[in-house]
Lab assay of single mutants.
Amino acid sequence: TSSHKLRLYERDDYRGLMSELTDDCACVPELFRLPEIYSLHVLEGCWVLYEMPNYRGRQYLLRPGDYRRYHDWGGADAKVGSLRRVTDL
């Protein structure tokens, strides 16, 4: 099985509160109590970021690497509604 891990930060450049995720999350704002995510670091696996909860809205593919600001993943703003692991490519 492949492993997945990413870290979410409330501010750009990996500042502020950090939360780690290793499984799908249908509602990021509810789980982490963060209305917006300004940076993230994908440590393992690929993920799909959705701008709205319950895997809706615009989708962004996140490969392992650094995303210091939301425009690094192509986002128009810092809204992160849900995240899902990519298990098949």
Rank of each mutant, 00 (worst) to 15 (best):
T1I: 15
S3G: 07
S3F: 12
S3P: 08
H4C: 03
K5Q: 04
K5M: 11
K5F: 09
K5C: 10
L6M: 08
R7T: 06
R7E: 07
Y9D: 00
Y9H: 04
E10H: 07
E10L: 08
E10S: 12
R11Y: 10
R11G: 11
D12Q: 12
D12G: 11
D12P: 10
D12T: 12
D12C: 01
D13F: 13
D13C: 14
D13T: 08
Y14A: 05
Y14F: 11
Y14M: 06
Y14D: 06
Y14N: 05
L17G: 11
L17V: 11
L17K: 14
S19K: 13
S19I: 15
E20S: 01
L21V: 12
L21N: 02
L21D: 12
T22N: 06
T22C: 11
D23T: 13
D23F: 10
D24S: 05
C25I: 00
C25H: 04
C25E: 03
A26T: 10
C27M: 12
V28S: 04
V28C: 09
P29V: 11
P29N: 12
E30K: 12
E30F: 05
E30G: 11
L31N: 13
F32K: 11
F32H: 09
F32L: 09
F32P: 12
R33Q: 15
R33M: 14
R33D: 13
R33V: 10
R33I: 05
L34K: 15
L34G: 13
P35Q: 11
P35E: 14
E36C: 12
E36G: 12
I37S: 12
I37A: 12
I37T: 12
Y38P: 15
Y38E: 12
S39Q: 00
L40N: 01
L40C: 11
L43C: 05
L43V: 13
E44C: 09
G45D: 05
G45V: 03
G45R: 01
C46V: 05
C46F: 10
C46E: 14
C46Q: 06
W47K: 07
W47H: 02
W47M: 09
Y50Q: 00
Y50S: 03
Y50K: 01
Y50G: 01
E51Y: 08
M52A: 12
M52H: 14
M52R: 12
M52T: 04
P53C: 07
N54C: 08
N54Q: 09
Y55R: 02
Y55S: 02
R56S: 10
R56K: 15
G57S: 03
G57Q: 05
R58A: 09
R58T: 07
Q59F: 09
Q59I: 02
Y60H: 07
Y60E: 08
Y60Q: 04
L61F: 13
R63T: 11
R63M: 09
R63G: 15
P64Y: 02
G65V: 01
D66F: 06
Y67F: 07
Y67K: 07
Y67M: 04
Y67C: 04
Y67Q: 08
R69Y: 14
Y70F: 08
Y70M: 10
H71T: 11
D72V: 07
D72A: 07
D72Y: 08
D72Q: 08
D72G: 06
G74M: 03
G74N: 09
G75T: 08
A76E: 14
A76N: 12
D77P: 12
D77Y: 07
A78G: 14
K79Q: 10
K79I: 06
K79D: 03
V80F: 06
V80D: 06
G81H: 00
G81Y: 01
S82N: 04
L83I: 14
R85S: 06
R85M: 13
V86D: 03
T87P: 13
T87W: 11
D88Q: 07
L89D: 15
L89T: 15
L89Q: 15
L89P: 15
